[in-house]
Amino acid sequence: MVETKTVKFIITRQDTPESAPYEEEFEVPYRPNMNVISALMEIRRNPVNRKGQATTPVTWDMNCLEEVCGACSMVINGKPRQACSALVDKLEQPIRLAPMKTFPVVRDLQIDRSRMFDSLKKVKAWIPIDGTYDLGPGPRMPETKRQWAYELSKCMTCGVCLEACPNVNSKSNFMGPAVFNQVRLFNAHPTGAMNKAERLNAFMEDGGLTGCGNSQNCVQSCPKGIPITTSIAAVNRDATLQSFKNFFGSDRD
């Protein structure tokens, strides 16, 4: 008789944002090229745990399924990463899934990343061009700059760098590593540069760039390979200059 191959999971679950987490084990039939999401879908289709008891289906978040939206981030075998690009064949079993605890847990593996979007709003991570008349074409961007700026634009607000950072925790108000890239990205843009001082000043407020302690876990963990620590130092330099301008004064720009 051919023994059917299975995949074992140990999932940290939580029924409500306030309730206590618990672990539940699952065993799903193996299919070639499975990823963690397809296994979770299998559990959803047949929500029975390893002991054979019927249970509630496991909740998780997802959207793009190709590692560009960042919604499906979770801790897989101790490492924060995207579930959609986590291939079962490459993972040690039993596969342990847990929510990224840096964020409030909504339910099971689903977390609330609002704090990241709030930070982006605080530092004005956009380029204001809306108005009542046509502003015409913007200034051009040098190709070399476009190339490195493009790397920064790959950030999908997935939260992995916050999860990896020792300074992002309940004792601190640090916004997290991802914000540095966005400030650098929009300040590098020729039109965005018109609001550079505004962005820097907002990021120099409490909870901003000073929260970084240079553990550099972020750059090691970022799934998009974004040079976060380069952004950190670059924004630090801009902030140094900005603080001199603020204190000693200069023409406002």
Partner: peptide, 18 residues
């Protein structure tokens, strides 16, 4: 004391230095 050290999970060189 506002850091939550995590070298056991992320044992990178700079994290150790941190």
């Amino acid at each position: 004391f506002t850091a939550k050290n995590n070298v056991s999970k992320f044992s990178f060189f700079r994290n150790w230095m941190f």
